[in-house]
Amino acid sequence: MSIQHFRVALIPFFAAFCLPVFAHPETLVKVKDAEDQLGARVGYIELDLNSGKILESFRPEERFPMMSTFKVLLCGAVLSRVDAGQEQLGRRIHYSQNDLVEYSPVTEKHLTDGMTVRELCSAAITMSDNTAANLLLTTIGGPKELTAFLHNMGDHVTRLDRWEPELNEAIPNDERDTTMPAAMATTLRKLLTGELLTLASRQQLIDWMEADKVAGPLLRSALPAGWFIADKSGAGERGSRGIIAALGPDGKPSRIVVIYTTGSQATMDERNRQIAEIGASLIKHW
């Protein structure tokens, strides 16, 4: 067993022997301040990774656009098919120029040779490549099948209805392509620590998230040296922004954090800054 596999296998073990965790309302004060600064709703939840206990939450059962955070769930569904012998990570998928959609920095470079399922998941999570996500959605049967996968996990809230990039439209009061912070946090925890996926697939999923290259201005910008984070960000229309993450000190994750916002007129930089400040408060009061 590799060191990384050992780390993920012992996530519940280490967490069980940690000192009790206590909620700190100071972080919620910052979440509410972010709402004021952005002029928009902000949803927040913080779960203990081992027990699933909610440590703090704000608007945990209000719907927010998922945006690209759905790509972690998508690759979880792909990995479940791999575990069941219905898919192979090494299978190569070929596609054409007509398949390319807006923001496809990886797939646009491989029109000639195609990409493997493993490479597509890596591109979808680490670079948020939209064509990679659409190609992977095709392998599982489309958005409705991802929703069905989530329902089978016990998540009857999260739903995907459309493809990239239309799913980022974020129309107010439109339930399409949305989740709730509580539902997303619980589902992410199941994917990373539950028995739904094999140990190898859980490790692969967290490795992809740990290698995320496009979430630097968010929670990662607030992390002290030595902290662990595996995350996936999302951005959408109407001032929408979000991030889902597993993080913790001492090089291992111990909490799940989900943050979503929508309806702001603020710039992307300002949305990023507010999420980073929430992260800084979380870490300060850990």
Rank of each mutant, 00 (worst) to 15 (best):
P25Y: 14
G114F: 06
L38I: 09
K109S: 13
I275Y: 06
R273K: 12
K284W: 09
E169D: 11
T179K: 02
V42S: 04
I93S: 04
R189G: 12
L219I: 13
G194I: 06
D231H: 04
T69E: 02
P25H: 15
I229V: 09
S80W: 15
E166W: 12
H156G: 12
M184S: 02
T69Q: 04
L38V: 07
K213Q: 14
W286G: 02
D83R: 04
N168G: 10
G242T: 02
L167H: 02
A245W: 05
S57I: 07
R255N: 04
D113Y: 11
S104W: 01
N130C: 05
S80H: 15
A34L: 08
M66D: 00
E175S: 13
D48A: 08
R159E: 06
T267R: 11
R59M: 03
G114W: 05
L192F: 13
E277N: 13
K252L: 15
E169W: 10
R220D: 00
L197G: 05
G234S: 06
W208E: 04
N173P: 06
N130F: 01
L28D: 02
L47C: 07
S233I: 00
V31G: 00
A215T: 07
D174S: 06
F64Y: 06
I243G: 01
D161M: 05
L47Y: 07
T187K: 04
L205Q: 01
L219W: 04
Q203E: 10
D177I: 01
E87T: 08
D129P: 01
R92I: 14
I283R: 05
S264G: 12
A276C: 10
M153Q: 09
D207G: 14
C121D: 01
T116Y: 03
A246E: 05
E195K: 11
V78W: 00
D231A: 06
A148C: 11
G39L: 11
S122R: 12
G52W: 05
Y260V: 07
K190C: 15
V117R: 02
D207A: 14
D269R: 11
P253V: 09
M180G: 11
P60L: 11
R271L: 14
V214C: 07
A266S: 13
A235T: 07
L199H: 14
Y44H: 03
K284R: 13
E102N: 13
I54A: 10
E56L: 07
N134E: 02
R189L: 14
P217L: 09
L150K: 02
I140G: 04
Y260H: 03
E169P: 04
E62A: 08
D83Q: 09
E46R: 05
E270C: 10
I278T: 03
E46L: 11
G234L: 00
W227P: 00
R41V: 09
S281T: 13
V29E: 15
I229P: 01
M67K: 03
M268S: 08
T139D: 11
P172H: 10
Y95L: 08
V29L: 14
L150Y: 08
R220C: 06
D33S: 12
F228M: 10
T69H: 06
A84K: 15
L146W: 06
L160G: 04
G216H: 08
V82L: 06
A77S: 11
P60Y: 08
I244T: 08
S122G: 14
I278W: 01
R238A: 11
G239K: 02
S57D: 08
Q88M: 13
S122I: 10
G251N: 12
I171Q: 15
F64D: 02
L136N: 01
G52K: 05
P217E: 10
S281V: 13
S254R: 14
E277I: 15
G194N: 11
R63T: 08
A235W: 03
V82R: 07
L100E: 03
E169M: 13
K144D: 11
T267F: 08
R92M: 14
I244Y: 00
V106M: 13
S240V: 03
R238L: 11
V258F: 01
L196I: 13
N152P: 05
R118E: 14
V101M: 09
R118I: 09
S281F: 09
Y44D: 03
N130R: 01
M67I: 07
L218G: 04
D161T: 06
I125L: 10
I256L: 12
N272F: 04
S122H: 13
S57Y: 09
R176E: 07
V31C: 12
D83V: 05
P224Q: 07
I171D: 15
G248E: 05
L47V: 15
P249E: 08
E166K: 12
F58E: 05
T193K: 15
R159H: 13
G90P: 08
D269G: 12
S96L: 13
G226L: 05
M209F: 00
L79P: 01
G226A: 09
S240G: 12
M184C: 05
V31T: 05
M180R: 11
S122E: 14
G248P: 01
N173D: 13
M268P: 08
L100I: 13
G236Y: 02
T198V: 08
Q37C: 12
I283G: 03
P181V: 08
Q204K: 09
R162G: 07
D99G: 06
A225P: 13
I244R: 02
I278C: 02
T131F: 07
L192D: 02
T158E: 01
E102R: 11
L160S: 10
S233K: 03
L205P: 01
S104T: 06
K252Y: 11
